[in-house]
Design a protein around this nucleic acid. Structure first.
Length: 286
DNA sequence: GGCCAGGAGAAAA
DNA sequence: TTTTCTCATGGC
């Protein structure tokens, strides 16, 4: 019998918006409107009814210990959103459209590989590759409704894959990046344990030692796995946002980050997520 | 059939 | 130091 708990009084939270906003790749909507996700080596299902969550696959103790932090429920979004709403009409619209988005606190290693795959790629194909990697190199967790779920492999598990093996999973030319990065982690050439304690600049510098990680991917990793809400990833969509909404067309990463921090504030990474989701899902005049 | 996708590395300027 | 070219792949 599966464990089911009910969590009440959850505000500024939409499981749909959170899992469909392009920050996580292993959540899927079920036919009943609930969402099943694989994260932290576990499988959980969440059905949301306004401010109430019906969560299966965990218990209260584990929810408070792990999932509360994963869903960033310890952060007060009311204050952040209020500040964004008063910033300008674009961010106001983006925040309204993305109502309920929170920045997940995901596994560092999984984010590194996931966003290496994301480069010059599209979200459905990124999801597909991550799924295949998990099926082939992760651990079997459980079977539910005829579907088997696998954890994301550890660096040691993934190190068993050759470049050719990885190419077979649809990652394209990123096969070498994944192979080399995995090797760097397994050999302790780059140590992930204390990465979250570094400053944002030091963290980026460390991450960029890994093959396949540049400024954009490093900021995604820092934002989605290291609680660096000032990390401001700039992809093709955010570039459009900056030029069209903010008349800012500089391409230098340092200058962009200075602008983002000065204008949006210390939570510019969170602003970025609302804007990204907004422009990506609306055909706004470009 | 060219263009695009949550870019990065290597070569060239 | 900054710009340009190339990379694998599926969807349109």
């Amino acid at each position: 019998m599966e464990k089911i708990i009910i969590v009440e009084n959850i505000t500024e939270f939409s499981i749909k918006q959170i899992t469909e906003s392009g920050q996580a790749f292993r959540w899927e909507m079920e036919t009943d409107g609930s969402y099943t996700g694989v994260a932290l080596g576990k499988v959980i299902n969440i059905k949301q009814e306004k401010n109430k969550l019906i969560v299966s696959g965990t218990d209260e103790e584990e929810f408070n210990l792990i999932w509360r932090e994963y869903f960033d429920l310890n952060r007060n979004y009311k204050i952040i959103i209020e500040e964004f709403k008063n910033k300008d009409i674009h961010l106001d619209a983006a925040v309204s459209y993305g109502d309920g988005i929170r920045i997940l606190n995901q596994d560092l290693w999984e984010m590194i590989i996931s966003f290496i795959i994301s480069g010059n790629n599209n979200i459905p194909r990124i999801r597909k590759s991550i799924e295949l990697i998990s099926e082939n190199y992760g651990d079997f967790i459980l079977e539910k409704n005829g579907k088997k779920y696998y954890s994301f492999p550890t660096p040691e598990q993934l190190s068993k894959a050759s470049i050719e093996d990885l190419r077979g999973l649809g990652v394209g030319y990123r096969d070498k990046y994944i192979f080399e990065t995995t090797k760097s982690i397994v050999s302790n050439e780059v140590v992930l344990d204390s990465l979250s304690e570094l400053s944002i600049d030091e963290g980026k510098k460390e991450l960029k030692k890994l093959m396949g990680i540049g400024d954009k991917v490093a900021y995604c990793v820092l934002l989605f796995a290291c609680k660096q809400s000032s990390a401001f990833p700039v992809d093709t969509w955010v570039k459009k946002i900056l030029t069209k909404f903010y008349d800012f067309d500089k391409t230098n990463t340092k200058e962009i980050n200075k602008f983002a921090l000065d204008y949006f504030g210390v939570n510019c990474g969170i602003a970025q997520q609302y804007l990204f989701y907004y422009i990506r899902n609306n055909n706004i005049e470009l």
